[in-house]
Amino acid sequence: MGVLHCGPGAMLGGLTAAAVHGLRHWERPDVCVIVANDDSFERVEGVTTFRTRRSLAALRSEGDPSLCRIEPAVLLWAAHERHPRSAMGVLAATIQQRLTTVEQLESWLAALKPLRRAPQMRELLRDVAGGSQSVGEVDVVRLCRDAGLCPPVRQVKRRDSAGRARFTDCEWDLPDGRTLVLEVDGAFHLEVQHYQLDVRRQRSLTTPTRTVVRCTTEELRREPWVVAADLRALGVPLLTSP
């Protein structure tokens, strides 16, 4: 990416631009280039062109005119991504990794209209503003809503057994005085290095009154009723419970 030159009628966009801005775990092999809709470019192997009628000048990063700002880069990518879950996931990831904010994405969402999937994007941003830091956490909130379970508190700051600050994904204070923690594992958590760190993290956060359990984003997507049943069995109360 560092050697690709983009002229005045093009700029790096999509997940390529997001990676340059610092987004991790969303790398793609092809380089995405945003081009003016009326311009003509020869096809280049390994380069995907995204045509737009929008003003390229308005989309350019202030510090680098060959680079799209991260907000329109991820919003335009999410609007045209084939898989809706990936589309929502990249928006949550840019916020979780502190590359942008809910407010900035909402502002750009309005500036880019009309934009495909805009209603779903706004709903996701509302959930993220409510405390979720990933699509997995959003899924847990929606799972609880559908199953009639009390919603979790998200991103709780805890000290592990070594005194280090940690933030848990989802927590419930149970009626018997215990605390249940649910950690949501995305795909990259299954890599050996991440898995070992996650296992160690789970151990260090577990106490006699705090139980830490885990689920995967794949479970939340494909079998949310199974996760809901397990949460209920572990003591998460119903919304109607006194």
Results as ranks from 00 to 15, higher is better:
residue 4 L to P: 02
residue 5 H to D: 12
residue 6 C to G: 11
residue 6 C to A: 13
residue 6 C to Q: 08
residue 9 G to H: 14
residue 11 M to Y: 05
residue 17 A to L: 05
residue 17 A to N: 08
residue 19 A to D: 09
residue 19 A to Q: 13
residue 21 H to C: 02
residue 25 H to S: 12
residue 26 W to S: 05
residue 26 W to Q: 08
residue 28 R to D: 02
residue 30 D to W: 07
residue 32 C to K: 01
residue 32 C to G: 05
residue 37 N to W: 08
residue 37 N to D: 12
residue 40 S to V: 13
residue 40 S to W: 04
residue 45 E to L: 07
residue 46 G to F: 03
residue 47 V to T: 03
residue 48 T to A: 11
residue 48 T to V: 15
residue 49 T to M: 06
residue 49 T to Q: 11
residue 51 R to P: 04
residue 52 T to E: 05
residue 56 L to Q: 09
residue 57 A to Y: 00
residue 58 A to F: 03
residue 59 L to F: 01
residue 60 R to Y: 10
residue 66 S to Q: 15
residue 66 S to K: 10
residue 67 L to N: 01
residue 68 C to Y: 05
residue 69 R to G: 03
residue 70 I to C: 07
residue 71 E to R: 01
residue 71 E to W: 03
residue 72 P to T: 03
residue 75 L to E: 00
residue 76 L to D: 05
residue 78 A to K: 06
residue 78 A to P: 08
residue 79 A to R: 06
residue 79 A to M: 04
residue 80 H to M: 06
residue 81 E to K: 02
residue 81 E to R: 10
residue 82 R to K: 11
residue 83 H to L: 08
residue 86 S to Q: 09
residue 88 M to T: 03
residue 90 V to N: 00
residue 91 L to C: 02
residue 92 A to G: 11
residue 92 A to P: 11
residue 93 A to Q: 11
residue 93 A to K: 02
residue 94 T to C: 15
residue 94 T to N: 05
residue 95 I to C: 04
residue 95 I to V: 13
residue 101 T to P: 00
residue 105 L to P: 05
residue 110 A to T: 13
residue 112 L to C: 03
residue 113 K to D: 00
residue 114 P to C: 01
residue 115 L to T: 00
residue 117 R to W: 02
residue 119 P to V: 07
residue 120 Q to T: 09
residue 120 Q to C: 06
residue 123 E to Q: 14
residue 124 L to Y: 05
residue 131 G to C: 09
residue 137 E to W: 02
residue 137 E to Q: 07
residue 138 V to P: 06
residue 140 V to Y: 04
residue 141 V to G: 06
residue 142 R to G: 04
residue 143 L to M: 15
residue 143 L to A: 10
residue 145 R to W: 10
residue 145 R to P: 00
residue 146 D to G: 02
residue 146 D to K: 13
residue 147 A to Y: 04
residue 149 L to A: 07
residue 150 C to E: 14
residue 154 R to C: 15
residue 156 V to C: 12
residue 156 V to R: 14
residue 159 R to T: 12
residue 165 A to I: 14
residue 167 F to I: 09
residue 167 F to H: 15
residue 171 E to G: 01
residue 172 W to D: 06
residue 174 L to M: 07
residue 180 L to D: 07
residue 183 E to Y: 06
residue 185 D to R: 06
residue 187 A to H: 13
residue 188 F to R: 12
residue 188 F to V: 14
residue 188 F to H: 15
residue 189 H to Y: 01
residue 189 H to P: 03
residue 190 L to W: 10
residue 191 E to S: 10
residue 192 V to Q: 14
residue 193 Q to W: 04
residue 194 H to S: 13
residue 196 Q to Y: 08
residue 196 Q to M: 08
residue 199 V to I: 12
residue 199 V to K: 12
residue 200 R to Q: 12
residue 202 Q to R: 13
residue 202 Q to T: 07
residue 206 T to H: 08
residue 207 T to D: 11
residue 207 T to Y: 12
residue 208 P to G: 12
residue 208 P to T: 13
residue 209 T to Y: 11
residue 218 E to C: 07
residue 220 L to R: 09
residue 227 V to G: 02
residue 228 A to L: 10
residue 230 D to K: 12
residue 235 G to C: 08
residue 238 L to S: 09
residue 239 L to Y: 01
residue 240 T to R: 14
